[in-house]
Structures are given as C-alpha cells and as structure tokens.
Amino acid sequence: MRVVLFSALLVAVAAPCFAEVHVEVPTSGFVFDAGIGGVSSNPLTKVTQFLFRGHAKASSKQLSFSADALRGELGPTHGSRKQVLRHVETTGRTTVIRTIQHGKSVDVTTINGSRFTFDGDEKIGHLKIAGPVEITDTGTEKSNVRLVGDHGIVDFDMRKENVQQALRKAVLDGSVKIDILQSGKETGHIIATGDHLVLDHAQSPATIVMTGKIKMHGEGDSDAGMATGITKLTLFLNDQGKFTHFDLGDPFK
C-alpha cells in the first residue's frame, strides 16, 4: 500500500490487511515503511504523528530509524512549512543511522541498541538508549570509532549543512568499550574497557574520556602498548574524527 501524504488535511492510514505500509511525508523528507501502521496530521498544529510496527523504518537523507516498532511525531520548524522529526520512541532492536555527505565521501554514524527515545529539532537531536548500545562512526573511509555500553545518551547535529561531525556528544555507562582505529594503520586498533565514557565533538580538540576501572591495549599493527590500573583515559580526535593521541590520568596541559 502506498500513500503520499500532503500536509493539507488530516490523513489517517491504517492497513492491517496488508503486509507492507509505505508512507511519504514530503514536508519532512521522511519516508516510513513497516508491516503495519500509519500517520495522522493536524493541519492546525502542523504536527504529524506516526505509529508503525513490524520491521518499521523511518528514513530521510540524513537520518533513519529501524526498529520493531516506531512511534513519534514530526513537527513544524520556526518560520517554515517544513517539518522536522521531534520525537521518536522505539521498541525492540533498533538501528539509527545518521549520514553526512562530505563532497564525494560519506560519514556514517550507526547506533544499534534497544528502546530508543529521540527528541529533537532542526539543530540538535537527543537520543536516549535504555538497552545495550553500540555506536559505530565509519568516518569517511572505514570503521573509525566503535563505542559500546549498557545504556547511554547521544546528541546529534541535525543541521543539514555545514556539519563536520554528526555525533556531537555521547555518554555511555555500564560495561563500556572503545575500539578506535589509528590513523594511517590498516589494522592498528586501540581497545579500552571501563565503566563510563563521554565522547565530545562539541569542544576542540574532540575527546573521548573513559573513566572507571580501565584496561587498555593496542591490537594489530598498532604501536600502542598495554596499560592497567588506569582510572581515566582521554583519547583525542582531529576535526575528521580520527584518533591523534591519548593521555592517561590527568591530561598534560
């Protein structure tokens, strides 16, 4: 079943008899695909609510959500007829992909986990992940940074232009892990495990700070060694999100 939603009037779609639903909301740039579900739009508030179940997917050029079920709303932007994704709740295994085009190359950030709650506007998106979470930032070439935790929060840069890094901030707790590829290395990874980590692209230089009872070692052709008894690890990243160096303990001034 295919429905193209023009935002003039309230339109409700429910298709329990069909195996697939496909809904486009052109004012937001989002497309919805699922086994079952639909959208409803209020012309007065210009808010579109949606609920999809069964391999549900909401996707635009920059952002996509995939989960067992998606519930949320698209809302108006300031001074524009366009809508932005304001709220999403997911159930079951969830994947969020944020994509940025840098000329011919693409920077893809993938977040896997369960039970996501997203709140955002045209500038920033705030994601809460209640279940185990894995964040993979592919960088412009290959898998660059991989962060794992039991639960956490992630802030995205939701702007469509002049975005260097989609991932502005991530805070993960529980049994956390960092797997970061060293620049210029084919297989040189730095692996660290700990209790808490914060990725911060909002400051310069960008950092990933891990605290707790930390163990760290280099793998593959990395020249990083093995460290134990660490309570604080600070990994420094350049503007492209690539690893430059790390400090243990309190960073050198």
Partner: peptide, 26 residues
Amino acid sequence: LFGYTSSDGSLEISGLSKGYEFSYRP
C-alpha cells in the same frame, strides 16, 4: 597502580599511584 608496557615490551612504566600523568602519541 598504573602500569604501561609498550607493544614490543621495550618500555615499561609501573608503580605509579594516583595523580599520575601519561601521554602517548603514535
């Protein structure tokens, strides 16, 4: 206690307690 061993074992740093600082550049 903090300890670091380089990938080939040529450098070992050990026994540092709280308040230590360590910096690595590839």
